[in-house]
Design a protein around this nucleic acid. Structure first.
Lengths: 138, 138
DNA sequence: AAATCACTCATACTAAAGTATGAAATTACC
DNA sequence: GGTAATTTCATACTTTAGTATGAGTGATTT
């Protein structure tokens, strides 16, 4: 909230500055009009991109960077997290076992421990919870 | 691909047109410079927003509108689709049955039919496939 | 050296998920 | 009114998922 207000304020200031500069340059006549227009165009293009990103950020949990801190907080081990990711890709325990070169028993152990740590009853629920925590890629 | 090229082409044309118009107005001197600059600013702001959206679209499956046409193409019935959505929320067959006021057998039938139509072997895989097809909300 | 932790694996069990088949009721459409 | 598709349900079965328990190994820490 505070950030948004600050950014908007900065933008307004930048806008006014640009206007001032452009009229100034025109009066003094030592800068070509095309240059000014191009500058303004580029600045507002960038502003558009930034604002759009901000809005999308607020609206949904996009840009999806993985929350590594959350993974630690949950106490998920490296292997458990790997298994979780494979589950989210729709693999069975057997398939995960082959992919990670371990036995299916091992995968079952990891899955079981992971489910407890995520407080999930099923692997499908684990996927949903992991998505909410933003600990797996969309 | 084709679309992207077309859009970029249109943007370039719009850009050039704006430049032409702005210099024209200046020469004839019947439009204030502030107006032109404001216009250019707005146009490029919008262009920035649009391009950002497009890029994000390509990069990830964002903006997430459900592809109803795809659902039809796959031949998913209303009930099968409902069940698919509940599965994506992490519910078990029994829970889905209670939520939709039908027996577990019914849910199993729907799930089985749905899996065939999505060409999935497991419900977790169905979730992944459905996400790729953008037929379920993120 | 002892303790702790993550990873590995196995066995045995229970619970869920998924398949196959058949069938009745409902809805929709021509 | 008949036909097709959907929805519903059941039974029996196979497969996968998940739990519980115990145990061995290697790396790290105290």
């Amino acid at each position: 909230m505070r950030k948004t207000i600050f950014i908007f304020g900065a933008l307004v200031v930048a806008l006014l500055t640009l206007f001032q500069l452009s009229t100034y340059s025109l009066v003094s006549g030592n800068t070509s009009i095309e240059f000014i227009i191009a500058g303004i165009a580029i600045v507002f293009f960038i502003i558009g991109v930034i604002i759009n990103k901000k809005v999308l950020h607020k609206y949904k949990g996009i840009t999806k960077e993985i929350d590594h801190k959350k993974i630690e907080t949950l106490g998920l081990s490296k292997r458990e997290y790997e298994v979780l990711c494979e589950i989210a890709l729709g693999l069975s325990n057997k398939e995960i076992a082959q992919k990670l070169f371990v036995s299916e028993s091992t995968i079952k152990t990891h899955v079981s421990n992971m489910l407890v740590k995520l407080d999930a009853k099923r692997r499908t629920q684990a996927i949903q919870i992991a998505k909410e925590f933003q600990i797996i890629p969309l």
